[in-house]
Design a protein around this nucleic acid. Structure first.
Length: 152
DNA sequence: GCCAACGTTGGC
DNA sequence: GCCAACGTTGGC
């Protein structure tokens, strides 16, 4: 059982969008970074928990908690020529990209990036490191407990 | 829109 | 294997 932080652009899928979906769950498609893919493939298990983070938006920060509801399987969008995530080098025999499914656990108050940066307890979080762009990062249990307590 | 940081591609 | 060029991410 591990903890994660997963970035989503709210213009694409916000915490409220997730809450409105059937089963409040969604395929975390579109990851096109090998390190993030490998996290899903090698380390993510069903019932792992993740912070749902809004990125590339006016108010970046943690917006909710989700759980991994299905382990990694091939990302359909890599096979779809009409998708912006289409990958001509991927095939069904040899898929390159994977996704997991996530399900809403609860929406939280927004814990803004600016607030996170002000908390010395969180200073070593991967997502706060300079230049970090990974869309999926592990969160250590101490950070998880601290954030969860602070989210109320 | 700007720009720093990073990952990927492809020529050599 | 090196590395320049290019594309993307993501905060501001």
């Amino acid at each position: 059982m591990r903890y994660w932080l997963m970035k989503s652009e709210p213009d694409d899928c916000s915490i409220d969008d997730l809450a409105a979906l059937p089963n409040q769950s969604v395929a975390w498609y579109g990851v096109r970074n090998y390190q993030a893919r490998n996290f899903m493939r090698d380390q993510m298990g069903v019932d792992d928990l993740a912070l749902f983070y809004h990125s590339s938006c006016a108010a970046p920060g943690i917006a909710g908690i989700v759980r991994i509801s299905k382990k990694a399987y091939p990302d359909e969008t890599q096979f779809d020529p009409s998708s912006r995530f289409f990958d001509p080098k991927a095939s069904r025999d040899n898929p390159r990209w994977l996704n997991v499914d996530v399900q809403l656990v609860r929406k939280t108050r927004l814990m803004a990036l600016a607030e996170m940066r002000q908390l010395p307890e969180l200073a070593t979080m991967i997502v706060l490191q300079k230049g970090n762009r990974l869309s999926i990062t592990p969160v250590d249990p101490g950070h998880w407990r601290f954030i969860e307590a602070r989210l109320g």
